[in-house]
């Protein structure tokens, strides 16, 4: 197992240096009235390839904010983020879209499947954005659903699926382009204990068997127990970062 805190640049899939995030809130009323609120304070985080990391912290501590930055959905106000050795700040919008498409699979608490679209088309959509033909996309999506035992739901729309099924479809969607990184923001937050265990088993399998780096946010200790490393955030700062007690 690689060291928890690697220093060699090339080992790092994620390298966050002194990242701060400040939101400026427009308070309704005057145009001049804007309040700054800092959510992340000089966060430093290095995650090597193949690690399984849990991020914990109280509500409002900045976990989602950090995850969005890691997932290239948002940019830090200050500091640097290198993904796979590339400085994200230097990338254009199109290049960011490409990174999200090819290199990062995002799994959300609320599943975020496209409504009124079949599970199959949901899983196939990232391939369309990657320029793969519709027929080929569908074929590959079907193969993936088959592997994960979801093939009988291929023609179902999200509203016809249970939460656990939706989340598994969402994981398939995250995996379709074989990304090296999966980011999951409270993936089991809306699921019962039994289903949560099944979902965590999938992440564990992906991490162990395919070497995919997985970073997930959770509130529950028994979910965090599946991971190798626990990062704890408090009021926008990392206050704890060590190997999970297994």
């Amino acid at each position: 197992m690689p060291s928890l805190h690697p220093t060699a640049f090339e080992d790092c899939l994620i390298r966050v240096e002194n990242v701060s995030k400040i939101y400026s809130l427009d308070t309704s009323g005057g145009a001049s009235a804007s309040v700054n609120s800092q959510v992340l304070f000089d966060v430093n985080l290095v995650i090597p390839r193949g690690q399984f990391v849990a991020i914990m912290g109280h509500s409002g501590s900045g976990k989602s904010t950090l995850m969005n930055i890691l997932g290239c959905l948002d940019t830090p106000t200050r500091g640097h983020y290198w993904f796979d050795g590339r400085d994200i700040a230097a990338l254009s919008d199109d290049e960011l879209a490409r990174v999200r498409n090819h290199n990062i699979g995002f799994v959300f608490q609320g599943f975020n499947l496209l409504k009124r679209m079949t599970a199959l088309d949901n899983v196939a959509t990232p391939l369309l954005y990657a320029g793969v033909s519709r027929a080929e996309s569908r074929k590959r999506a079907l193969a993936l659903l088959d592997q994960t035992g979801l093939v009988k739901f291929a023609a179902y729309q999200p509203s016809q699926l249970s939460g656990g099924q939706q989340q598994r479809v969402a994981i398939c969607r995250a995996l379709i382009n074989n990304p090296p990184l999966i980011l999951a923001d409270e993936p089991t937050g809306n699921l019962d204990t039994q289903t949560s265990r099944e979902i965590m088993a999938i992440f564990q399998m992906l991490n162990r068997e395919q070497g995919i780096t997985v970073v997930l946010v959770t509130h529950e200790d028994d979910i965090a127990a599946y991971t190798q490393r626990l990062v704890r955030l408090k009021d926008g700062r990392i206050v704890h970062d060590e190997a999970t007690a297994q």
């Binding site: 199109d94 490409r98 999200r100 498409n101």
Partner: peptide, 16 residues
């Protein structure tokens, strides 16, 4: 808007 956000999260660029 949310759909647009999801599409961007899974790799749609501005042109798409």
């Amino acid at each position: 808007t949310r759909e647009i956000g999801i599409r961007m999260a899974i790799g749609a660029n501005r042109r798409a």
